[in-house]
Lab assay of single mutants.
Amino acid sequence: MQIFVKTATGKTITLEVEPSDTIENVKAKIQDKEGIPPDQQRLAFAGKQLEDGRTLSDYNIQKESTLHLALR
């Protein structure tokens, strides 16, 4: 499925993911596309910060959802 990640600079990244993917996997995909190390990424959805060990389906993130990326 496709999801979107909006960066602090307003850029939107499109990612191909599975509901079973962990947040860690998603951060690795962002690193592949943007070169941002996962340990510098903070992802949020619906106002909640997402934890590495959880999956997209844990957070009820569905196709075409938009996550927000902040850098630490």
Rank of each mutant, 00 (worst) to 15 (best):
L56K: 00
M1G: 02
G35S: 08
A70F: 14
E24K: 09
V5E: 00
K33H: 15
A8T: 11
Q2P: 13
T7A: 06
Q2W: 12
T12M: 08
T66D: 03
D39C: 06
R54P: 05
Q2M: 06
A28Q: 07
A44W: 13
Q40T: 13
Q41R: 02
E24M: 10
V17A: 06
T22N: 08
T7G: 07
L50Y: 01
Q40E: 14
R54V: 13
L15C: 03
R72G: 15
L56T: 02
G47W: 05
D58S: 11
S20R: 12
R72Q: 10
Y59K: 01
L69Q: 03
V26Y: 00
K29S: 06
S65T: 08
L15F: 05
E34H: 06
S57C: 04
R72L: 09
A8R: 14
K63C: 04
F45V: 04
A46I: 07
G47F: 05
A46M: 12
H68G: 05
N60W: 05
D58F: 15
L43G: 00
F45I: 05
Y59D: 02
I13S: 02
E24P: 04
A8G: 10
L67C: 02
R72V: 14
A44R: 07
G35E: 05
Q62F: 12
I3A: 01
K48H: 09
L50V: 04
F45W: 07
L50H: 00
Q49W: 09
V17R: 00
E18F: 11
G10V: 04
A8I: 06
L71T: 10
P19F: 08
R42T: 12
R72Y: 15
P38R: 10
K29P: 00
I36H: 11
T55Q: 13
P38L: 15
I3E: 00
A44L: 14
N60Q: 13
D58C: 03
A44S: 15
E16S: 09
N60T: 05
I36P: 03
K27L: 03
S57T: 14
A46R: 15
K48A: 15
V26L: 12
I3V: 09
H68S: 14
K27N: 01
I61Y: 01
K27T: 02
Q41F: 11
I36L: 12
Q31H: 09
T66L: 13
S57H: 15
L67K: 01
E64A: 12
G53R: 07
K27R: 05
S20T: 08
A70P: 02
K27A: 02
T7F: 12
K63Q: 15
T7N: 09
F4C: 03
K6Y: 11
L15Y: 02
T66N: 05
L15R: 00
G35D: 06
S20Q: 14
K29E: 04
L67V: 08
L50R: 00
E64Q: 12
D52Y: 05
Q31C: 04
K29D: 04
S65F: 07
K6T: 15
K11F: 15
T7H: 13
E51W: 05
Q40F: 06
N60L: 06
F4E: 03
T66S: 05
D52C: 04
Q31D: 06
S65C: 04
D58T: 06
P19W: 09
A28D: 08
A70N: 07
H68Y: 07
T7K: 11
F4R: 06
Q49R: 10
D39K: 08
G35T: 04
A8F: 11
N60H: 12
E24R: 15
A8S: 09
A46K: 08
D21A: 10
G53D: 12
S57P: 03
K27Q: 02
E18H: 10
Q62S: 09
K29F: 11
D39H: 10
P37M: 10
I23H: 02
L56Y: 01
L43W: 02
V17N: 01
I30H: 00
I13Y: 06
S65E: 14
G53S: 15
D52M: 05
Q31E: 13
E64G: 15
A44K: 14
Q41W: 03
T66V: 07
I30S: 01
Q41C: 04
K33Y: 08
R54F: 12
I3Q: 00
K33Q: 10
V5C: 03
S65P: 02
G53Y: 10
G35I: 02
P37Y: 05
E51L: 14
L69A: 02
T7V: 14
D58I: 03
T12S: 09
S20P: 06
I13H: 04
L69I: 05
G47D: 09
P19H: 06
T7W: 14
D52G: 14
A8K: 12
V5I: 13
Q40P: 02
D52V: 05
E34W: 12
Q40K: 09
F4P: 01
A8H: 14
L43F: 03
K63E: 12
I61L: 04
D32N: 08
I23N: 01
Y59I: 02
P19I: 08
L56C: 03
R54M: 07
A44I: 10
F45P: 00
E24Q: 07
K33E: 11
Q49Y: 06
D21T: 12
Q49E: 11
S57N: 07
S20A: 11
K48V: 15
P38S: 12
Q62T: 08
T55G: 03
Y59G: 01
T55F: 15
D21E: 10
K33G: 06
I13E: 01
S57I: 09
Q41H: 03
A28W: 08
E18I: 11
L43Y: 03
D52K: 04
I36G: 02
H68R: 06
S20L: 10
G10Q: 06
A8D: 08
T9E: 13
R42I: 15
L56E: 00
T7D: 07
G35M: 05
E16T: 09
K6C: 06
K48F: 11
L43I: 07
F4H: 12
T7C: 04
I3H: 00
K63M: 10
D58Y: 11
I30K: 00
M1Y: 14
D52N: 10
E16H: 15
P19R: 13
I61V: 07
I23L: 05
E24Y: 13
I23P: 02
F4S: 05
E16R: 11
